[in-house]
Simulated assay, not measured.
Amino acid sequence: MQRVKKLLVLPAALLLTSCTVMDVVGPRPNGEIMALAKQASADATGGDPDWRALRQTQSQQLNDEALRLCGVDPSGKTPSSCDVAGGDTELPAAADASALLEHTVAAADKVPSDSVDLVVAQAIDALALTTVDLEPVQGQLTSDADAAAARDMLARENAMYYGLGIALAYADDGLHARIGVLRDASHERVDALTRILPPGVGEALVPAAGYAFADGYAEPTSPEEAAQLVKSMQADLVKEWRYAAARADAAQWREDAIRLAAHAQRV
């Protein structure tokens, strides 16, 4: 009888253990995303108003991303195990956007691949709050993919410069000044790119950019069309830089591309 009794008790114990495990097992928020979210929340406690507001928004974006990654249960709700609230928030605030850039470059290889766009975009937006220094863009391109991306962006910068020259012929005084600022900024990015590309690459790309107007744009015939052209070209260039930064292969090019994207966005 004692042996039978044990056999009857054992399944009950197993059932209890199973229920307890099911109560606590489930998807958890991604650790890297949550670390970035908590850092953003800490950053939102200091700095100037623009920095605080941006980092508070970015903290919420990262929390939302963690919930997205957790998915939903059969009823369409986020599992209770995926709780993004609470935890250790006693983190020192990042000193500035440069510190955030360092954190982002380190984290970009660890977060899920479909979260890279978000974390890179946040670093770009943070850097673009203030003047962007391109002097640190000195690193080597260590992969063929990154070298190809840098060459492509150099060609796009040259095409942008050429397109601005076309718009200049139809520009009024205000647009004249804007084009001057944009061309100077483009020249700074070209200088930075030529520092990291093999010698001669920049010179080889300039003639190709100058012989034909950029694809997808129409030559202006009035000041209004010239202003719209400049606006469209600048917006598209920023998008291309943000894409290049998010798709970087090596950490060095990712850091450089984030700086260059922020520089383009800042203008």
Rank of each mutant, 00 (worst) to 15 (best):
E219P: 00
F213D: 07
E203H: 10
L15Y: 13
V190L: 13
A99S: 11
A227S: 13
V9K: 15
P198H: 01
L168N: 14
V105M: 05
Q228V: 07
E90A: 15
P27M: 04
R247N: 08
G87W: 07
T142R: 15
L67V: 14
K239E: 04
A235S: 08
S232C: 06
D133V: 07
D83Q: 00
K38G: 09
G46H: 14
W51Q: 09
T17A: 15
L54V: 02
D173K: 15
L91D: 02
W253H: 03
M34V: 00
R151W: 01
M34T: 05
G165A: 06
L54M: 06
D117S: 15
R151C: 06
A262N: 10
R242T: 12
V132C: 03
S41I: 09
A171F: 00
V9Q: 10
Y170Q: 15
H263E: 12
A12D: 04
D191R: 15
K77I: 10
K38L: 14
K5S: 13
A149M: 13
V111N: 01
V120N: 01
T78M: 02
Q60R: 12
M160I: 01
Q140I: 11
A261G: 07
S143N: 09
D184G: 05
L134E: 00
D23F: 12
P223S: 10
G46L: 02
G26I: 07
Q58V: 08
A123L: 10
A106Q: 11
L7R: 14
T89V: 09
A185M: 06
G202Q: 04
A192Q: 13
E255F: 03
D23H: 11
G47S: 09
A246F: 06
D83C: 00
A53N: 06
D256Q: 08
T20Q: 11
E224G: 11
L67T: 13
A204Y: 11
A121M: 06
Y217D: 05
S232L: 03
V190S: 08
L7M: 14
Q234N: 08
L8Y: 12
V105G: 03
R55N: 14
R178M: 05
A12E: 13
L16T: 09
D249C: 00
V206D: 05
L69M: 10
A97T: 01
P11G: 07
D184Y: 08
L15Q: 04
R259E: 03
A248T: 02
H187W: 11
K239V: 01
K38C: 13
R28P: 00
E157F: 14
L237T: 13
E65G: 11
P11S: 11
G180N: 04
V120W: 04
Q61L: 09
N30C: 13
D64L: 02
D43H: 09
E225K: 00
T17W: 07
G47L: 06
